[in-house]
Nucleic acid binder design. Structure first.
Lengths: 169, 169
DNA sequence: CTTGGAAAGTCAACATAGCTGACATAAAAT
DNA sequence: ATTTTATGTCAGCTATGTTGACTTTCCAAG
């Protein structure tokens, strides 16, 4: 499993595949992800919601009308876990669950005005950090960033990821 | 907060800073991080440990002899939370906590042989995914990946991140 | 030398958010 | 008519985070 010393690889620049480089990448993921969630987490403390609510709100905003099952796949949690979150959001009037038009077993999820407001507050904070990082690193770095992250995803999820289209503005 | 339509920015290629691009970046982080933790999580199920144990083991391996306080800063949790994790690792003989040579209040943490074995098993899996993503994306993309992640970190943590040197092999 | 405060450990209580398993209902599909 | 699917719900468990209070150790400054 362990990559040997770079010199033994024969290639010109496989230096970026050394264990040390990979470990730095692992640490970068850990630290960056922590920062990435910190801003919305701080906001959520003011409400009685957690990170799970944020994730649900994010994807409902991105794909208005998506079904519970689709959301389940995107979030990668059990329906019991999601249901607890979704129930409070519906009760509090942030999310509307409409019975499916074609298939009445399905529920199509939408943000209410109030839900969209919270989404905006959360994503403003998260985008501010992302924008600042993007700006500091530049367009070429951003392209690389996206490429590596995509390559890291599980294939099925990657398809979901790529299929999300801009539905707003 | 919201970036206007790209055309109004005047610049040549600020297209990578549109809200849509930022949202895609947010989603990429979420999905990639999930994949990133999935492999070690699967392994940890066989033991009675969780992700918190993995993180502790990772950093103790990277900086043998680090103090509890340093580890605390790196992990960003409370000492009570870390202590619970650390105690089980010491009890199970994966981690050794030596009384500080200079300052006897401090504990210097080291992996035992058994601890190093688990570290290897976990990091092999995690590095395999990272290596595969790096290889697929190429060196230039990897450089960009690292740049964006670094720019995303909180400054204090970024200094910690950059100060970690290769202590192995 | 005494004392203040830092480092570490511990106990208790609690919250969030995951999990499994079991079961209910409605509606679509066969 | 029966089976399968989509969803919702209840109960109970676990991991991992939190705060607050308290103790012990021991360095370092007064």
């Amino acid at each position: 499993m362990t990559t040997g010393s770079p010199g033994t690889q024969g290639g010109e620049s496989l230096l970026f595949l050394t264990d040390e480089q990979l470990r730095k990448g692992i640490e970068a993921m850990f630290f960056a992800y922590r920062a990435f969630t910190a801003d919305p987490d701080r906001i959520l403390e003011n409400y009685e919601y957690g990170r799970a609510h944020h994730r649900a709100i994010h994807f409902i905003n991105r794909q208005p009308g998506l079904t519970v099952n689709t959301l389940l796949t995107m979030l990668g949690v059990t329906k019991q876990s999601l249901n607890r979150v979704l129930r409070t959001l519906v009760e509090d009037g942030l999310v509307e669950a409409r019975v499916g038009r074609k298939d009445k077993r399905e529920r199509n999820l939408f943000l209410t005005t109030k839900g969209a407001e919270l989404e905006r507050e959360l994503s403003d904070a998260q985008r501010a950090r992302m924008r600042s990082a993007y700006r500091a690193a530049g367009p070429a770095a951003v392209a690389g960033f996206r490429q590596v992250l995509e390559a890291m995803m599980d294939p099925e999820i990657r398809r979901h990821y790529q299929s999300i289209r801009d539905t707003n503005s």
